[in-house]
Design a protein around this nucleic acid. Structure first.
Lengths: 87, 87
DNA sequence: GAATGATAACCTGTTTTGGGATATTTTGCA
DNA sequence: TGCAAAATATCCCAAAACAGGTTATCATTC
């Protein structure tokens, strides 16, 4: 493990985040304002220049109206090709 | 936002992770072996010396048999005092 | 109370980050 | 089509976080 910034998994993760922001009809600037962070921060994590830890992800997910269960299910499907059992 | 390593949120997050590892009956060494990382890595993230990004969390959660939906629900409850609507 | 097991702390060179400023790209409309 | 405005990416670099093997400390058991 030890996530390398530019792994396949991160690519999937970032794509899902970008999609979620667009679904929420927010620009990076608008999202940044809601989060009280600079726009470059949003740009960075969307491009994989900076990682998001768990707590940050939850915070952003809430603001974007992301259903985390669904989000994670989609993430796992895209990662593995199928839905991982249990979780 | 911008998660400070030793925030209240991280404290909750780490406590849940430690609890999950113990529920899974694994020592840090055993978990580390499964993840192919040093024990000090596990120790670090459990003590908040190192953050876990989203992809790492999912990987660990899978190994620990964590139900991520439940985990996140618990996290949110402990963070806010109540369950956040939608997500 | 010694051995074993489990976790924390150390050390230090390397990598990541923060965020304001600036550049580049994209969009949309006259 | 041409351009202004909007949106996003890139720069910069000091400061902070990380990696991971090694060692120390704490806990458990007999």
């Amino acid at each position: 493990m030890v996530a390398s910034l530019h792994s396949f998994k991160h690519d999937i993760f970032r794509a899902l985040l970008i999609e979620a922001r667009k679904d929420a009809q927010l620009t990076q600037v608008q999202l940044a304002e809601k989060l009280n962070i600079p726009q470059s921060f949003v740009s960075k994590y969307e491009r994989g220049e900076r990682r998001l830890d768990f707590t940050e992800f939850i915070e952003i997910a809430d603001l974007l109206g992301i259903d985390t269960s669904l989000f994670i299910a989609n993430y796992k499907i895209k990662i593995t090709g199928y839905l991982t059992p249990i979780n």
